[in-house]
Design a protein around this nucleic acid. Structure first.
Lengths: 183, 183
DNA sequence: TAATGCTTTCAGAAATTTCTGAACATTCAA
DNA sequence: TTGAATGTTCAGAAATTTCTGAAAGCATTA
């Protein structure tokens, strides 16, 4: 593969974007490269295309592996490992959400829970606990919800997203039905 | 205010969490302090409580200000600025989403769009464009959807979240109705 | 107009993160 | 058993981010 300007700008940008999403620049660039390249690439190719050291490539691939975003393939009569992106773009987004939840939200939730179990020592701490409870509940709601959305089929998720704020109407409708039933 | 162990652990952790969410440790800690403290604090208090320099406090508050997460108040006969967190926890979450979208997603969408406007120079670029289009569409869908959810009232959003994956059932139901209507 | 009390700015220091490359590990073929 | 090809690790170098503190700015009051 050659680095055309189009491909280079994508890979570069994805590197920067990556660092916002919880992995570093190199990891983002390696992944970008593998996503837009139909043929699997070996570690050497990757290092040369991105101009980074072998060690760095190895560490980056290790990271992507732990995120289950790449898979390794082999060619007959060739001992090199070849790497490919794994799953659909949807899978990728899910993985990123999941990983971030595990690394960033869960520990926070657990700390907040611990704090809420403590007895407030004074009025200030009592107030603090109220606010912390709000944050805890919000985080918990959002993550629970995100998880239940992930269990929805992609088609249903798509319907839901297409609905946009129109989902409000559907909810009203459902409310009406529930009320009738209760009569 | 005093830094009790409970409050200290919250503030510390929020600092680390903050750095994952697009603002640095200090900004996270200052915000945590203001959220759990009912009384407004002045810059000096903040610096002392967190053990950071005057300049750092000022920069942190400036950042929080630009995110519209704090407001400044004054006391009669006191020239110092006092700071308070602003809005509900929900507002805070919205602000964070919004800011992150503006800073992280929008530039990427715009780059991807530009790339998609270019003519593919060869088969490799054509394949790359296909994958880039997938990413673009996914990002666009998600952000559009997130935006339309933000326009929903908090109560409706809450209903929706409580529904969890049960939203699937409601969608099926709506589908049936739409089909009947079309008959 | 000078002094005071407070905030802001920013150059460079300190801390943190990322990257390199040499050393080591592993596998296979000769 | 040796050596060639490849992958992995990790100490320290390089790059990046964050923080400090001194200087400057800005009102206000004496």
């Amino acid at each position: 593969m050659r680095m055309t300007p189009m491909i280079e700008s994508f890979v570069c940008h994805f590197g920067e974007m990556g660092s916002r999403w919880g992995f570093n620049r190199t990891v983002g660039q390696i992944y970008a490269l593998l996503v837009i390249n139909q043929q699997p690439l070996c570690a050497n190719d990757i290092g040369e295309l991105l101009g980074i050291s072998r060690g760095n490539v190895s560490m980056g691939l290790k990271e992507l592996h732990s995120w289950q975003l790449v898979q390794t393939t082999h060619r007959p009569g060739d001992r090199k490992d070849y790497y490919q992106s794994r799953g659909s773009i949807w899978d990728m987004a899910n993985r990123v959400f999941e990983e971030r939840r595990k690394r960033e939200i869960d520990p926070t939730l657990s700390l907040l829970r611990d704090i809420l179990l403590d007895e407030a020592g004074n009025a200030e701490e009592a107030y603090a606990q109220e606010r912390i409870a709000e944050i805890h509940d919000l985080l918990e709601n959002i993550t629970d919800w995100a998880q239940s959305l992930q269990s929805l089929s992609p088609e249903k998720l798509n319907t839901l997203m297409k609905l946009g704020s129109g989902v409000g109407k559907v909810l009203e409708f459902k409310d009406k039905l529930m009320t009738k039933k209760a009569d």
